[in-house]
């Protein structure tokens, strides 16, 4: 039963992504509104995959990814970035920091589910 952490400040996107993730059999969705909130959830729940926005208040997605990758307990959790920044350099930057995949908005739900299923089955 995979636990998926959705980190997104926009309630609309958070609900939409959670909605899609709940369609993955047996998955449990945990929501966080920013990077700091995500770190709190990481310490209290066992997380199998993180879906993370880049532009967020308090702590952005890139900072969160670098902190997660630097932490021995969480460094192997797959992270998929979901962002409105669709330029190639943004994608490269996110992957260089340690994100496993990069999905530009507006997201295609089927594509997202397929991607998440790929990481969960590993």
């Amino acid at each position: 039963m995979p636990n998926i952490l959705v980190v997104e400040d926009s309630p609309t996107m958070r609900q939409l992504i959670s909605f899609a993730m709940k369609r993955i059999a047996g998955s449990k969705v945990i929501e966080a509104t920013d990077g700091v909130d995500a770190l709190k959830k990481l310490s209290s729940e066992k997380i199998d995959l993180i879906l993370c926005d880049i532009n967020m208040p308090v702590m952005d997605g890139l900072k969160l990814v670098s902190l997660v990758r630097g932490s021995p307990g969480y460094k192997d959790i797959p992270i998929i970035m979901i962002t409105a920044e669709g330029a190639e350099e943004d994608r490269k930057r996110a992957l260089a920091i340690g994100a496993n995949a990069y999905l530009p908005k507006p997201i295609q739900t089927q594509e997202l589910i397929k991607l998440v299923n790929g990481y969960i089955s590993k």
Partner: peptide, 14 residues
């Protein structure tokens, strides 16, 4: 704010 979010995130307007 929700209208703006929908137009950015669901439609993909810049």
């Amino acid at each position: 704010r929700i209208v703006l979010e929908i137009v950015i995130n669901l439609i993909g307007a810049e």
